[in-house]
Amino acid sequence: MSIQHFRVALIPFFAAFCLPVFAHPETLVKVKDAEDQLGARVGYIELDLNSGKILESFRPEERFPMMSTFKVLLCGAVLSRVDAGQEQLGRRIHYSQNDLVEYSPVTEKHLTDGMTVRELCSAAITMSDNTAANLLLTTIGGPKELTAFLHNMGDHVTRLDRWEPELNEAIPNDERDTTMPAAMATTLRKLLTGELLTLASRQQLIDWMEADKVAGPLLRSALPAGWFIADKSGAGERGSRGIIAALGPDGKPSRIVVIYTTGSQATMDERNRQIAEIGASLIKHW
């Protein structure tokens, strides 16, 4: 067993022997301040990774656009098919120029040779490549099948209805392509620590998230040296922004954090800054 596999296998073990965790309302004060600064709703939840206990939450059962955070769930569904012998990570998928959609920095470079399922998941999570996500959605049967996968996990809230990039439209009061912070946090925890996926697939999923290259201005910008984070960000229309993450000190994750916002007129930089400040408060009061 590799060191990384050992780390993920012992996530519940280490967490069980940690000192009790206590909620700190100071972080919620910052979440509410972010709402004021952005002029928009902000949803927040913080779960203990081992027990699933909610440590703090704000608007945990209000719907927010998922945006690209759905790509972690998508690759979880792909990995479940791999575990069941219905898919192979090494299978190569070929596609054409007509398949390319807006923001496809990886797939646009491989029109000639195609990409493997493993490479597509890596591109979808680490670079948020939209064509990679659409190609992977095709392998599982489309958005409705991802929703069905989530329902089978016990998540009857999260739903995907459309493809990239239309799913980022974020129309107010439109339930399409949305989740709730509580539902997303619980589902992410199941994917990373539950028995739904094999140990190898859980490790692969967290490795992809740990290698995320496009979430630097968010929670990662607030992390002290030595902290662990595996995350996936999302951005959408109407001032929408979000991030889902597993993080913790001492090089291992111990909490799940989900943050979503929508309806702001603020710039992307300002949305990023507010999420980073929430992260800084979380870490300060850990």
Rank of each mutant, 00 (worst) to 15 (best):
H24S: 05
H24Q: 10
E26F: 06
T27Q: 08
K30I: 11
K30P: 15
D33T: 04
A34L: 03
D36H: 11
R41M: 02
D48S: 00
I54Q: 02
L55K: 04
L55F: 12
E56F: 09
E56V: 04
E56D: 13
R63N: 00
M66D: 05
S68Y: 02
F70E: 04
F70S: 03
K71H: 07
V72G: 06
V72Q: 15
L73Y: 07
L74H: 12
L74T: 09
C75A: 12
L79R: 07
S80N: 00
R81L: 08
V82D: 01
D83Q: 02
D83C: 00
A84H: 08
G85V: 02
G85T: 01
E87H: 12
E87L: 14
Q88Y: 14
R91W: 06
R92N: 09
I93N: 15
Y95S: 01
P105E: 11
P105Q: 12
P105F: 09
E108H: 11
L111I: 05
T112A: 11
D113G: 05
D113I: 11
D113C: 13
M115C: 01
V117H: 02
R118Y: 15
R118I: 13
C121W: 03
M127G: 11
M127F: 03
N134Y: 06
I140G: 14
G141S: 09
G142N: 12
K144D: 05
E145G: 07
T147H: 12
D155S: 13
H156V: 00
L160F: 13
D161R: 02
W163E: 07
E164K: 15
P165F: 10
N168Q: 09
A170P: 11
I171P: 09
I171V: 02
P172C: 01
D177G: 03
T179R: 12
T179S: 10
A182E: 06
A185K: 04
R189W: 12
L192A: 07
L192K: 13
L192P: 03
T193D: 12
Q203R: 13
Q203M: 15
I206W: 14
M209H: 11
M209Y: 00
E210S: 14
V214K: 02
A215G: 09
L218V: 06
L219M: 01
S221V: 01
I229M: 08
S233M: 13
G234A: 07
G234N: 09
E237A: 10
G242N: 13
I243R: 07
I243N: 08
I244F: 15
D250F: 05
K252P: 00
V257G: 01
V257K: 03
T261M: 07
T261V: 08
A266C: 15
E270Y: 15
R271F: 15
R271L: 10
N272Y: 12
Q274T: 08
E277P: 12
E277L: 13
G279I: 11
A280Q: 07
L282R: 05
W286M: 04
